[in-house]
């Protein structure tokens, strides 16, 4: 694929802090390489802003390899941008066209308050994990392969669920700001493994309770979460979580 350049206009949400009211600001950027990642395009804008003596756009990022879960924003109304199964750092400018105006907004949910510009406080996810997303049995060092026998099907299901990087796109894209895809991935991951059996019932109860207490919305099966998830976490995990909840009642 040949590299080319495009001119785009970024309309970015700017908000000084949680207390102040934010607004959109418009930044035209010219000669953007289509090989650039979206975050590199934001870097370009920030360099221009710094040269002008203005405050750069604050946004979360870390690995820029699509594996850490730090980055994320709503790009033209879709979490992580138009491409399937990628994080914002792996969204590239070749996904846009010359002359496009691209609207960039932070995740919006009561449980994810805005810290600044595109940066939101996602510690709600940490609180959910702390309430039950762990195993308390001593698993020792790395066991020999096949020392603990786990059926291939269960290992695959657990591994697929464990791929969740906790970026928050599921909450951001859900019409109800529900965190069920995230919570279900964590519950499903551990419930498929023998190490996760000890706290299985308590885990489902506690994590769902914490999720509710933190003010996330309710799932109404719109499937937007699954469609935007950079790790392609499946909706079946929510069905698994629902079954785990049902069995925790008895």
């Amino acid at each position: 694929m040949g590299s080319s350049t495009i001119n785009v206009t970024l309309k970015v949400w700017r908000q000084k802090n949680a207390e102040t009211k934010g607004e959109f600001e418009t930044y035209p950027i010219n000669n953007v390489s289509t090989d650039m990642s979206f975050l590199e395009a934001l870097d370009t804008v920030n360099e221009q802003l710094l040269q002008q003596g203005k405050e750069p756009i604050a946004f979360d990022h870390d690995c820029r390899e699509g594996i850490c879960g730090m980055c994320g924003a709503m790009v033209d109304g879709i979490a992580h941008g138009p491409d399937k199964a990628v994080t914002l750092c792996q969204t590239h400018m070749r996904s846009f066209h010359n002359g496009d105006t691209i609207v960039v907004e932070p995740w919006r949910a009561k449980a994810f308050p805005i810290i600044k510009d595109l940066v939101t406080d996602r510690s709600a996810f940490d609180k959910i994990i702390a309430s039950g997303g762990y195993v308390s049995v001593s698993t020792g060092g790395v066991p020999d392969a096949n020392a603990i026998l786990i059926p291939k099907k269960d290992a695959d299901l657990a591994m697929d669920a464990a791929a969740c990087i906790g970026c928050g796109a599921c909450v951001a894209s859900c019409p109800n700001a529900s965190a069920m895809l995230f919570v279900s991935a964590k519950i499903s991951h551990l419930s498929h493994l023998p190490q996760g059996q000890v706290e299985r019932k308590e885990r489902a109860k506690r994590m769902i309770q914490t999720m509710d207490d933190l003010g996330f919305g309710n799932c109404s099966n719109h499937r937007e979460c699954e469609a935007v998830c950079p790790k392609e976490i499946k909706l079946e995990n929510i069905a698994t979580m629902n079954r785990e909840f049902a069995s925790s009642l008895f």
């Binding site: 949400w13 959109f24 709503m74 033209d76 109304g77 609207v103 907004e105 919006r108 949910a109 009561k110 449980a111 019409p175 109800n176 700001a177 529900s178 003010g215 996330f216 919305g217 309710n218 109404s220």
Partner: peptide
């Protein structure tokens, strides 16, 4: 659900 997203998206 409305309370879970007090500020809606522009897009």
């Amino acid at each position: 659900n409305k309370a879970a997203r007090p500020v809606d998206y522009a897009v």
